[in-house]
Design a protein around this nucleic acid. Sequence first.
DNA 1: GATTTGGTAAACACGC
DNA 2: AGCGTGTTTACCAAAT
Length: 678
Amino acid sequence: MMQESGTEATSNGPANENGGASVEGVPREGRPKSATPSAEVTAADLLHLQQHQALQMARQILLQQQQQSQSQQLQSQQNTGRKSPKANDKQQSLQVPVSVAMMTPQVITPQQMQQILQQQVLSPQQLQVLLQQQQALMLQQQLQEFYKKQQEQLHLQLLQQQQQQQQHAGSKQSKEQVSAQQLAFQQQLLQVQQVQQQHLLNLQRQGLLSIQPGQPGLPLHSLTQGMIPTELQQLWKEVTNAHVKEEHNNSSSNNGHRGLDLSSPAPPKNPLLNQHASTNGQYMSHKREGSTLEEPSPHSHPLYGHGVCKWPGCEAVFDDFQSFLKHLNNEHALDDRSTAQCRVQMQVVQQLELQLAKDKERLQAMMTHLHVKSTEPKATPQPLNLVSNVTLSKSAPEASPPLSLPQTPTTPTAPLTPLSQTHSVITATNLHSVGPMRRRYSEKYNMPISPDISQNKEFYMNTDVRPPFTYASLIRQAILESPEKQLTLNEIYNWFTRMFAYFRRNAATWKNAVRHNLSLHKCFVRVENVKGAVWTVDEIEFQKRRPQKISGSPALVKNIQTSLGYGPTLSAAFQASMAENNIPLYTTASIGSPTLNSLANAIREEMNGAMDHGNSNGSDSSPGRSPLPAMHHISVKEEPLDPEDHDGPLSLVTTANHSPDFDHHRDYDDEQGHDDML
DNA sequence: GATTTGGTAAACACGC
DNA sequence: AGCGTGTTTACCAAAT
């Protein structure tokens, strides 16, 4: 395998040889090169340091403000405060209701919100608004403070530099150096300011910063809509975590040196804090799975976990179970408050049950629709992607091609990516209904299929249902899933039979189709190899296919691509070189967190959809915008300038050495004879 | 209704 | 000769 990629460069001329092309020579930044590197580095380092400092300060301010705003808001609501069992002088002195005063990370959990609700006569909506307000407020203040500080420090630094330079004022050379240095630094400053402004603007646009301190009832619709709940929680957790952290480690306050909270919510370092964070928030619990925290203790109690009292709103920490029991009997005895809390908890449970019932119902309806005889809806915990266009596939171990998109079929007649059944429930005969289903959901938005496949892998593997993807998509998927991003024809066959029960029949038919597609589509590039010929994917071409038609104007498409930097030239040389160097270009799968990826994907999907429907011919989103999803091995067929001409014979000599050493599993080819049903 | 796209079938060529 | 691979053409159906 490895030799293949290594040697193919020699064996195939046009495909790979432009690898050394100097496309990357394009300067990425417009930064003046005159400045000496060392000076730039120094400035950058300083800036970095100062950003850290500013961030820390911002964090501190945030924490203080958070406290204040929380206590203020809640005090204004009512004053029936109860002291927290937790040892926290500050907050005790504030005499704020326990559940809110202890704005530990769990504050976002429904239980606590509910408790606040019941304690404070707040409706859930009010509560939510309250939290959102606080969050927005904090963010705003934090950001502003941070930016202000950052700018101040930058200016300060600039001044210092100038002073230094004046002292040094000597030779002409050093003067030039100095001015270049200054220039670079000023540019940096400008850049920072611009980024800040943009950031604030963005936040404002999102509604994040639109809330003014005294302005009640401004929900963060856009925020909550734009962000996945987990992201929100993460964000909130980050903020509140910092809060706790600050309180706990006031002496050794060197912890908060992480990056800007907004962009890089890092997991808390302090296990204790994390433990707090996951105490009674069911959202967090799964994140801590596998840790020792989940181990059953000898003294197990539903309300006692990780050394913390899990009574809603109470996070009292106990070293031993006995003291917890004592606390439970004392603090949570049968009184009005506890009763009310219990009622609220019941409501929570009821809500959840209601939701569960609804989902079950939906599942039933879906299964009925799919003619699945499900004698019992074994509410398996969503083995397949039901709701999660956004939650990326569980990041399949293989670096599945990025750029996932909506697998929600848009057509009712779709073979439908199976929803909530396990393959064990569905038999081949049950779902065999699909005839010559030629439609191509995967193509609708240039939709790669990886999420669907990875999520419904089991299903497709075991159910004789035709996958709702085109051959081209499947072939591409097969190739991209391979470690080398290249497969022989036989390997592609094997992938098909391995991954899809459906393709274990009618081999002659679909194999022919596979071959046909490989030859027909420009996106599949045949590369000579020592061991024979392998097929690779030209991602650009793949993305190109659809929009060309949509836009109706190949020239326009080309223009756009060029303007986006993915013009044909680039696709030829750049891809090749990237592929050769095994550099992932812009694979969303390779960078960023899954959630961010999913966000990006969702956005991209939206854009694709919008463009698609909006027939904005110039918008052909995918080729340029979907950012070169996987520039895995890519070679380019001749004459890349002609998008439509795919009848020209390849310049590659087709000396197909079949790889005889490949494991031929022909397990499923026995039925080659009958090509029925298709 | 024309065009595009994908699926299927089939013929053909080539090399092993 | 048979098989696998690859190319190409033709036709049909669905979507645009």
